[in-house]
Design a protein around this nucleic acid. Structure first.
Length: 562
RNA sequence: GCGCCCAUAGCUCAGGCGGAUAGAGCAUCGGAUUUCUAAUCCGAAUGUCGCAGGUUCGAGUCCUGCUGGGCGCGCCA
């Protein structure tokens, strides 16, 4: 597709004398496919030639020499509509996908070192759907950027430091630690945290106690440190279970605590460069009217979130020499990251412009009856149960011999992951059980179904891949539509990477699966005439490849039977 | 008060750098299965693209103002 487009732009530049870049911006696939495969609006040409657009289009159509791969050019009003040599196009796309296999679509520039900071849940707090967004978007970006050949370092910047440990500790003192045989110790810790913070409203002593605990922790007090290590270990084990279940891996778990002993040096650097000032006893940097005063050290000497991120980004640069660092963090923290970038610029850091905040909207409505956030673990369990019920009660034809629970697990994950990744990052989402766990329509399971269907064809249709794909045996419009959609995969991936938007890939895949499902009604393989059978099979196998690649970019493992 | 984000069908959302008649899914109604998986497919119906101006041959898309909603603004993270 992109090759054909380039050839057309060159030919049009030749024929019109217009700037190739301007032509490239104008050439577009017509919304109505009856008009052709690509169209060139002739308004600019008309202006250059002093004609009206329809005349210019007609004149261009008469003299235009078709570049290779094109079959026809005709004027329609102010547009020059072009049609591909479709059989050649289909053959080319299918052979290319089959030849490149799981590397198809990876035709990117690559070569950069990119740090992605994502997920970053708080220790001793529940892992809920808010963390899920950062986790899934971040993980998908890791997959996409790696696919394009970049070196990607995924970092989980754990919230493993802060006054919240004081509350957990205060709660445990009053109501006890989780017993050794506690089936869900993190839930118990969360309960202690919630009860302690609730209690502080009536009893100010609790707050003082929590602050004192944190002060002792920062001072290296043995008892406080031991409790912190215990709570951190319990939480990490829980997080790892969840990450393993979804299939997520990090390259580093360097959380906030990791940077504790590194902040003094950074603060000293800020002071040495003379860009900071003391204000009301606190130390920070004035960044102007818009960005405000960036606090780096509280009046009591304690550091802040910004101090830690400033320290962390410097550490990451010296460790990885990144070309770019992405922070997959909620939109409300936009100011924080602008301050971080501005601070780095003021410090003359070479990576100041490499800092990219990848924001996302908040999730509303994800609440339990008691008002707390739903723990991800419970959410997943509910999802699997629903998938199992749907499979047994709603699915009409079920393959025999399936491990239903295993399939339900994969379907549930597909539904949850896709539901989150399919919408634009920045939009706030209102959580809805039925919508998030729908298995019909524009959903993860719909994509999985298309993939599994093709797999079924491979197993049962008795076809083999042809030695060479012949486009004349794939002459149906459905074959052309499917090939066209497959040909757009590389640009969808590239655009997703440029905009840090996994939803571009998600939307692409829905269109691909829809196109397949339509084709599948018409292009039967099993009882097809022998001369077309293997070629149709090749078309679908290529489609399966693109579906599988795309699903993996979203962090979803394609399934073969469902 | 200042700043950032959002507003498209009854609901949830897509709409590359401005291009021809604004698209999907859900829900509703009707149809397709002795067939490689019906978690599918086909058809019908559905719009003041928040409002008002502006730029342009052409605006859902760009600019300005306004309305509504969300969020942020030095001692939380």
């Amino acid at each position: 597709m992109q090759e054909l487009r380039r050839a057309l732009v060159a030919a049009l530049a030749d024929a019109t004398g217009l700037d190739p870049e301007a032509i490239d911006g104008a050439v577009t696939p017509p919304r109505n496919p009856d008009h052709g495969d690509l169209a060139f609006p002739c308004f600019a040409l008309a202006r250059a030639r002093g004609q009206n657009p329809a005349q210019a289009a007609a004149a261009l159509a008469r003299t235009f020499v078709l570049p290779p791969g094109f079959a026809r050019a005709e004027a329609a009003g102010p547009y020059l509509n072009l049609r591909f040599d479709r059989t050649a196009f289909v053959a080319r796309v299918v052979s290319r996908v089959l030849a490149e296999g799981n590397r198809y679509g990876a035709s990117g520039t690559g070569g950069l070192t990119i740090v992605v900071d994502f997920s970053s849940p708080n220790i001793a707090k529940p892992f809920h759907v808010g963390h899920l967004r950062s986790t899934l978007i971040g993980w998908s970006l890791v997959r996409i950027l790696r696919f394009l050949g970049h070196t990607v370092i995924g970092i989980n910047h754990l919230g493993d430091w802060g006054t919240q440990f004081g509350y957990v500790h205060a709660g445990c003192r009053r109501w006890g630690r989780p017993p050794d045989d506690d089936p869900d110790p993190i839930e118990t810790l969360v309960d202690r945290y919630v009860r302690a913070t609730r209690l502080k409203d009536e009893d100010p002593a609790v707050e003082a106690e929590a602050r004192d605990f944190f002060r002792r922790l920062e001072a290296g007090d043995a008892e406080a440190t031991a409790f912190w290590e215990y709570a951190r270990a319990v939480s990490l084990e829980e997080f790892r279970t969840i990450y393993d279940r979804i299939g997520i891996r990090f390259d580093a778990f360097t959380g906030e605590a990791f940077f504790n002993d590194k902040m003094a040096a950074v603060l000293a650097e800020v002071e040495a460069k003379g860009i900071g000032e003391i204000s009301d006893g606190a130390f920070g940097v004035a960044l102007g009217e818009e960005l405000g005063f960036a606090l780096l050290r509280k009046a009591d000497g304690a550091t802040l979130y910004l101090t830690r991120d400033l320290t962390a980004v410097d550490y990451r640069y010296s460790t990885y020499r990144f070309d770019r660092v992405l922070y997959v963090v909620g939109a409300p923290q936009a100011l924080h990251f602008r301050q971080l970038g501005a601070l780095c610029a003021r410090l003359g850091k070479p990576y100041a412009d490499a800092i990219v905040h990848v924001p996302f909207g908040h999730v509303h409505g994800m609440r339990t009856r008691s008002g707390g956030a739903v723990a991800l673990k419970d959410f997943l369990e509910e999802a699997v149960e629903r998938a199992l019920t749907a499979f047994r009660e709603e699915v009409v034809k079920r393959p025999a011999g399936l491990d239903e629970r295993a399939v339900a697990e994969q379907i549930a994950l597909s539904a949850i992951l896709f539901n989150d990744l399919a919408r634009g990052r920045i939009k706030d989402v209102t959580f809805d059980w039925d919508e998030a766990l729908s298995f019909r329509g524009d959903t993860g399971p719909y994509l999985q179904y298309a993939h599994a269907r093709i797999n079924g064809i491979a197993l049962k249709a008795g076809a083999e891949l042809p030695v060479a794909v012949d486009g004349h045996r794939l002459a149906e419009d459905e074959a052309y539509q499917l090939a066209t959609q497959m040909s757009r995969f590389p640009e969808a991936v590239a655009r997703a990477a440029e905009t840090y938007e996994p939803s571009v890939v998600a939307g692409y895949l829905l269109e691909l699966a829809r196109t397949f499902s339509r084709s599948n009604e018409v292009l039967r393989v099993k009882d097809a005439p022998p001369e077309v059978k293997d070629h149709r099979f090749a078309l679908f196998v290529a489609c399966r490849q693109v579906l599988a690649s795309g699903l993996r970019l979203l962090g979803i493992e394609p399934i073969d039977r469902m």
